[in-house]
Design a protein around this nucleic acid. Structure first.
Lengths: 173, 173
DNA sequence: TATTGTTATACTCTATAACTATA
DNA sequence: TATAGTTATAGAGTATAACAATA
């Protein structure tokens, strides 16, 4: 697999942001918000791309498929609607992922006896084995991602991001 | 347009994270890295979704198309390869976006005289008018996203995220 | 030979809406 | 009537690789 060479060096992000400010100088923009938001998006993309290329790619799992396995691992057998909410995807997307994961024999789909519109998902033994072995590896890469931050910085980062997500979700109704 | 109701309330993200820790209790995971990374990804998705539904949707622009316009606005006429790098997309994706934006008469594509393999992109007057009017609106929503953070928190957030992105990009070679 | 950008293919994910089968 | 999940369709974005034109 050929990979795009990393386009950023240690100081490059900051330099680029300074150049942008210089280009927009004199205009009444909120430059601190601009910096914060662009770095949120960039870091989010970098996280997903990194995980897909390292931990997930080796096991033929998409990001969303991994998320579904993870939800079922943490929470156990769940109704599909709940899984979609937890994974942050639409029910239409989940239907596609279910087909893939059932085909890989990683999850099982069972319909309810009492309300036959409903269906639940759960890990198969094979699925449980996979996520049990995969997640520690995933978590090591999470640790790598924040390895340049102190423990208190990691916690502060999570706290600040929760506030941002909550602000945005409060708007979208 | 019908929208998915926001699934998070103010304390809900934190509560969910606590429940996850309880489920995984006793296992030697880096829970602080887990929190930080999951919040990075979640916030990144929330930012993009919010912008697409508010500022960009009104103008029939995809996130990437907006990014390309923005790059050309800030940096002026640029070679396509450079635009792809700045926008963080592959050259294949850029080719598609170019077609769309040229069709909308927002950008212009010109080939070089000295090296005829190369091509540059620039804004048309229509494209410049659009981004000039659109960006202040976009920036207002950026400000909204971080409105619950103090100025020093916004700066700290950007600083921490730059470190994360740099760590991840340093790995991917 | 190497490089720039295009084209082609296949896949993932999203959004929307119509549909089914149940309730 | 309302609800849970599926199906269908169209679009955005990615990855990969082959390709043409040019250097």
């Amino acid at each position: 697999m050929s990979r795009r060479i990393a386009s950023t060096s240690a100081q490059e992000l900051l330099t680029t942001e300074s150049q942008i400010r210089a280009q927009l100088e004199g205009q009444p923009f909120d430059f601190d918000a601009m910096s914060a938001v662009s770095n949120i998006y960039r870091a989010g993309t970098a996280v997903r791309t990194h995980m897909e290329r390292t931990v997930l790619g080796e096991h033929d799992l998409s990001w969303v498929a991994f998320t579904v396995l993870w939800v079922l691992w943490i929470w156990g057998k769940q109704e599909t609607g709940h899984v979609a909410d937890e994974a942050g995807i639409t029910k239409g997307t989940l239907t596609g992922v279910i087909k893939t994961l059932v085909g890989q024999q990683l999850i099982r789909r069972t319909t309810h006896d009492d309300d036959r519109r409903r269906a639940s998902l759960s890990l198969t033994p094979k699925g449980k084995t996979l996520i049990t072995h995969l997640f520690p590896h995933f978590n090591q890469h999470e640790a790598l991602a924040v390895s340049s931050l102190s423990l208190s910085e990691q916690r502060e980062l999570a706290r600040l991001l929760r506030k941002v997500t909550n602000s945005l979700n409060a708007e979208t109704v």
